[in-house]
Amino acid sequence: MPIGFAYTLVVLLVISSILLTLLVLLHRGKGGGMSSMFGGGVTSSLAGSSVAEKNLDRYTVLVGVIWFACIVGLGLWLKLAQQG
């Protein structure tokens, strides 16, 4: 397989990784910190998600799927390249 293919995947993976990180950071945090994590405080999540949040979810899932595909593709390519 041509090496250009691998470079395309690498570029895609880098871009999608950075985008994904930014998109995740754009979400409103929902965790209540340490005390709610292991039993302790009472967490109430009364706030519903807004329209903006829903769209953000959609984009995140989309980028996530691309990211995932790139990982699998690049992993397979590297494996094949190593054997050859």
């Binding site: 990784s17 990180t21 995740v24 929902k30 999540s45």
Partner: peptide, 19 residues
């Protein structure tokens, strides 16, 4: 980069469950 983004995704998955 992949592992860093992976951590971000794990965080998001956790928040989705909480939510």
């Amino acid at each position: 980069l992949t592992m860093t983004a992976g951590t971000g995704v794990v965080m998001w998955l956790g928040e989705l469950i909480t939510d």
